[in-house]
């Protein structure tokens, strides 16, 4: 019963960059009972389109419906169900200035990042990595007593 296994999937939705298009997409997920794990939106350079990346989960059948229902929306240009992709998520984290700068810097470097801002009271670091590794980073960061961690949501590109 491969069909009924819930799998994490990432889809890219290319949409006309017009008002309420995001509302149409999130309302579709809510109305039909689909999950959104993460969602990012940004305009596509030199076009009137936007790129929405949605991480979701569901069986193959549910994924097929999500793709088809999204495609039915009038302002949706293209829906890409990612198979072979590079997937990254950015995270910003704020640490107390009392933590060792070099330790925090080394940790962030291990996750494709580094320290991006140092103030009187705190250190701000940025990392960008695969969502699975981001989970590890957040766990590892706990020992440096972070004030705040902000996840950016997933972006993906087909290989």
């Amino acid at each position: 019963m491969k069909n009924s296994i819930n799998e994490r999937r990432v889809i890219s939705v290319i949409v006309l960059n017009e008002s309420s298009v995001l509302a149409r997409i999130t309302a579709l997920f809510a109305g039909r009972g689909y999950n959104i794990e993460s969602l990012t939106v940004a305009p596509i350079p030199d076009s009137d389109m936007s790129h929405i990346t949605i991480a979701t989960n569901g069986s193959a059948k549910v994924m097929e419906q999500i793709t088809k229902q999204l495609h039915k929306l009038i302002p949706v240009y293209k829906v890409i169900e990612h198979e072979e992709m590079v997937e990254k998520e950015m995270v910003l984290a704020k640490f107390p200035i009392t933590e060792h700068l070099s330790d925090v810097g080394a940790l962030c470097a291990a996750y494709n990042g580094g320290i991006v801002n140092v103030g009187k009271e705190m250190i701000i670091a940025m990392v960008a990595d695969e969502p699975k590794r981001i989970k590890h980073f957040i766990e590892a960061a706990q020992r440096y007593n972070p004030y705040e961690i902000v996840r950016g949501g997933v972006v993906a590109i087909e290989r």
Binding site: K61, Q65, K68, Q69, H71, K72
Partner: peptide, 8 residues
């Protein structure tokens, strides 16, 4: 005519 109806 509606692909979403197929296999729903």
């Amino acid at each position: 005519i509606d692909a979403a109806n197929i296999g729903k």
